[in-house]
């Protein structure tokens, strides 16, 4: 059964750098007849500190978040990484704490955005965009923590003019890894260099992902090579923004 109201957790990366992805995700949800609640006091899921070993600091931030979702409604997050943090790591982070039950309550209601569109809302998308060749980068957290690796392809499969091009080493990490990219920049750079090599080889002119961390890394590397070496760079977008752009045209044509 489709829920009529959901909470939306936008993630700090989208808030600061990719707000259009968050706006598009909210608009897509609203178009499906779902009322969206965006608690304005939300900040960050706490993952950067959690993955850096600063658990007390992470918990303090996470504790502020779990209080924002009091009603028994799904919490939709446009990121496999942040969704994975809340769903799989909040139970560890709050183990033995006074508010453990509250944290588990939140964890159990978390959905990654594409998972929610496909499995819960069962959206039916109409494509009114131009023909385009698209490469998909699925984040490691969406793939392995959330187990939603196939959702973007399922959504793109509904779009008649989108051709999905599969890159070599598709399931391999792009090298972002949060603080990994700054603590071990050489290894991270080697990983993203290979990733964009394989992506470019597909000939796709568009790249989509469900995670803005990966996009920041991959599109940053593409842009650098475009600026310094004159190489081609596909347009990189969060899947929500890509879907909204192509299917919103259909809405306009209907009206």
């Amino acid at each position: 059964m489709k829920p009529d109201t959901i909470y939306f957790f936008g993630t700090c990366l989208i808030d600061l750098i990719y707000p259009q992805a968050g706006v598009s995700a909210v608009q897509l949800l609203q178009r499906e007849g779902v009322k969206v609640i965006y608690p304005q006091a939300q900040t960050c899921c706490g993952q950067p500190a959690w993955n850096s070993g600063y658990r007390d600091e992470a918990r303090k931030v996470a504790r502020a978040q779990i209080k924002l979702f009091p009603k028994d409604l799904p919490i939709v997050i446009p990121s496999g990484s942040c969704a994975g943090m809340m769903k799989t790591h909040y139970p560890e982070l709050f183990k033995g704490e006074a508010d453990e039950a509250e944290a588990l309550q939140v964890a159990n209601r978390v959905y990654e955005f594409t998972e929610f569109l496909v499995d819960v809302l069962q959206v039916d998308l109409k494509d009114f965009g131009e023909p385009v060749a698209v490469a998909v980068h699925t984040s490691c957290s969406a793939r392995r923590e959330m187990g939603v690796a196939d959702k973007i392809e399922q959504l793109l499969g509904q779009l008649s003019k989108v051709e999905v091009k599969e890159q070599a080493y598709k399931a391999e990490c792009c090298g972002f890894g949060g603080t990994f990219a700054v603590k071990q920049p050489e290894i991270s750079a080697a990983m993203v260099a290979d990733k964009i090599l394989h992506l470019r080889a597909t000939g796709a002119t568009q790249l989509v992902s469900q995670d803005c961390g990966c996009l920041l890394n991959i599109s940053g590397a593409f842009a650098y090579q475009a600026n310094h070496e004159g190489k081609t760079a596909p347009k990189a977008q969060h899947i929500a923004e890509f879907l909204w752009d192509r299917t919103q045209a259909a809405e306009e044509m209907k009206s």
């Binding site: 600061l16 750098i17 707000p19 700054v182 920049p185 750079a189 993203v192 920041l216 940053g220 842009a223």
Partner: peptide, 12 residues
């Protein structure tokens, strides 16, 4: 090191 191989992130 980030900008050795990538452009800097732009705040919205």
């Amino acid at each position: 090191a980030w900008t050795n191989v990538r452009t800097a992130p732009q705040l919205a």
